[in-house]
Design a protein around this nucleic acid. Sequence first.
DNA 1: ATTTGTGAATTACTTCACAGCA
DNA 2: TGCTGTGAAGTAATTCACAAAT
Lengths: 217, 217
Amino acid sequence: MGNRGSEFRIPEAAIRRLPVYLRVLEELAEDGVDVVSSAELAARVGFTPEQIRKDLAYFGAFGTRGVGYDPALLGLKIKRILGLTHEVPVALVGAGNLGTALARHNLTRHKEVRISAIFDRDWDKVGKSIGGVEILPLEDMEKEIRAQGIKMAIIAVPPGEAQAVADRLMDAGVEAILNFSPAKLQARPGTYIQNIDLMTELQALAYYTTLRTAAEG
Amino acid sequence: MGNRGSEFRIPEAAIRRLPVYLRVLEELAEDGVDVVSSAELAARVGFTPEQIRKDLAYFGAFGTRGVGYDPALLGLKIKRILGLTHEVPVALVGAGNLGTALARHNLTRHKEVRISAIFDRDWDKVGKSIGGVEILPLEDMEKEIRAQGIKMAIIAVPPGEAQAVADRLMDAGVEAILNFSPAKLQARPGTYIQNIDLMTELQALAYYTTLRTAAEG
DNA sequence: ATTTGTGAATTACTTCACAGCA
DNA sequence: TGCTGTGAAGTAATTCACAAAT
């Protein structure tokens, strides 16, 4: 789905699993666990041990043979790989149902990535806050993104506006976008766009149902 | 990510693209377009023409050589494949930030799949409605799912409760689940679970940023 | 004794290239 | 001629199987 002007050659699928490992590793570290095997980790994240070891091997050797991994240490390594050692600011464009939910959801967990700027076209929403972050007018987007040095953004606007918003974001220096609008959104070279279409995912689900078999003609 | 007790052998990736084609085809049909080539369709959905033709070929031959596809007809065929010819009822478990947003979001577009039952553990929420659908107590879940013949569900509860909810859903006859909680959620044979962890997706995004390169040590 | 790290084998998915048909 | 449908080729991702390390 996403694409990028390739530099190294590490599978996108592997990158997307790393944060899952990270979450479990942080839980283990918090519980005082000082060693975990790829098998134990696999049981908790729902992938295979081989896959975990392979994913990690793209970046180096972080375990001890015959023993396993130190959750705290491996967690730190993964944070370094992903670039989550310092809190990463994210822009949210669109404070509708979904955007608002994402903003509130983000507050509860996951301190590594924080929505630090919210923009909306609707002047009735501008000035209001979601979890302490004020909604700013769309006009101020580029200025605020540059001021905060924001490199990541979430698009949660209606489909018709999505590409225009993406273009403006990329112009303002944003390099990675999570797009929730149902639209193709072409990424420029050196830029990464991950599209998540929730209603489309829901429709695809229907295929795996026996209702389908009955309805098929 | 998802898995299933295989019957046929059609790539999951292909299935997940079909609803994207469907959305564009319905737009075209509504605009009175009576023929579209795989190349034109590809430009609109952001995939390649070959991929579209290949995906469709798994299910049959729906186009006219030298001409293209009839949007209305192909749309109907895809609906049949997915099992979206009749409105599909979906259960939503968890009426928190995300669940509520999904419910409201679902009302606006996509009539093929409709959230027709909402459940929450919190008795303060029970009795209230989201877009005309009343929130029911978690206790009534199985009863209501069986009564409505629901086969699809969305899980938007905290991670600790997710597996228990999934088990209860599957016991009640649900065959496909879209899970938004960060948890492994093992699917039983004959059942399909698609996991979408939004905050994890956001964290993965950081990798594709130049901030990462600077932070790496 | 146990578990990592990794080349090799396998499987899944995509792209190519062209035959088949309107 | 023009575009679909599809085997063949190529690429990407996963799983296997075992040597290396402690």
